[in-house]
C-alpha cells in the first residue's frame, strides 16, 4: 500500500475486515505484527522495530480526522485547531494565525470564537479537518469522516480533503464504507478476506 503526497485514497471493506486496525497501524497507534512502514524517507516500522517516539511522530507527521469530531469541549474553535501547533511549541499568535488560515480555507472562520457545542455537525467536522491539517502533516488518516453527514455535506467534506491534499501536498487515506463518497476516489484499497487489494476508483469530479 502506497500513497503519494497530494493523493486521496480510499480504504474500504466490510465491517470487521480490519480497516480500523490497519488505520491504527498506519497512525502508529498500535504496532503491526509484521511488515514495514515508511513515511517519506523515514522508516517507522520494520518487522518489530519501531521509532522511539511514536507520540511525536503522530503529533508532527500524522493528522487525524475522525468519524466524530471529538473537539475539546472547553476550547473554542480557534484554540481547538491551534492546540496542536501550540503543543509542538509554535508561538500562540502563529498557531492561531495558522488555525485561522485553515478555518478560512474551510469556510468556518466566522465561527472562530464559537465553542464546539455551538457548531453544527458539518461545521464541527470541518473544524476537525482543520485540526488534522494544522501541523501540515505529510499524511492524514481519516476514519469515516463523512459517516454522520448527508450526501451534500459528505461530498463537501471530500472536496475539502481533496483541495487540502492538493494545496498542502498531503497524502490522505480515508477509511469509509460510505457509498456516496467511494466514487470520488481515484484509487481504492479494498480489504477482502484479510488481503488488501488495490483497485482503481471512479475519480468522480467533485466540482
Amino acid at each position: 500500500m502506497q500513497v503519494a503526497p497530494g493523493e486521496v485514497v480510499g480504504l474500504i471493506g466490510p465491517s470487521g475486515s480490519g480497516k480500523s486496525t490497519l488505520l491504527k497501524c498506519l497512525g502508529a497507534v498500535i504496532d503491526p505484527t509484521a511488515g514495514h512502514m515508511v513515511l517519506g524517507d523515514q522508516v517507522i516500522y520494520d518487522n518489530g522495530w519501531k521509532v522511539r517516539d511514536l507520540r511525536a511522530l503522530r503529533r508532527d507527521q500524522i493528522g487525524f480526522v475522525f468519524q466524530a469530531p471529538y473537539l475539546i469541549p472547553f476550547l473554542d474553535v480557534t484554540d481547538n485547531v491551534a492546540l496542536l501547533p501550540m503543543l509542538a511549541g509554535v508561538p500562540n499568535a502563529a498557531a492561531r494565525a495558522r488555525a485561522l488560515e485553515l478555518l478560512t480555507a474551510l469556510d468556518v472562520q466566522h465561527r472562530a470564537r464559537a465553542m464546539p457545542s455551538q457548531l453544527s455537525g458539518g461545521e464541527q467536522q470541518r473544524v476537525a479537518i482543520a485540526r488534522g491539517l494544522v501541523n501540515r502533516p505529510p499524511v492524514i488518516l481519516a476514519d469515516e469522516p463523512t459517516a454522520p453527514l448527508d450526501s451534500e455535506r459528505a461530498l463537501a467534506v471530500m472536496r475539502i480533503l481533496n483541495d487540502m491534499a492538493r494545496q498542502y501536498q498531503t497524502a490522505i487515506i480515508v477509511v469509509t464504507h460510505d457509498e456516496k463518497i467511494i466514487p470520488t476516489f481515484k484509487r481504492i484499497y479494498h480489504i477482502r478476506d484479510g488481503v488488501t487489494v488495490e483497485e482503481a476508483g471512479e475519480g468522480r469530479d467533485l466540482g
Binding site: R55, R59, F64, A68, Y70, I72, L84, L87, R131
Partner: peptide
C-alpha cells in the same frame, strides 16, 4: 474520548 484524541494527536 477527548483524552484519547489528545493522546492520539500526540499530546504528552
Amino acid at each position: 474520548r477527548e483524552i484519547a484524541v489528545l493522546k492520539l494527536i500526540g499530546t504528552r
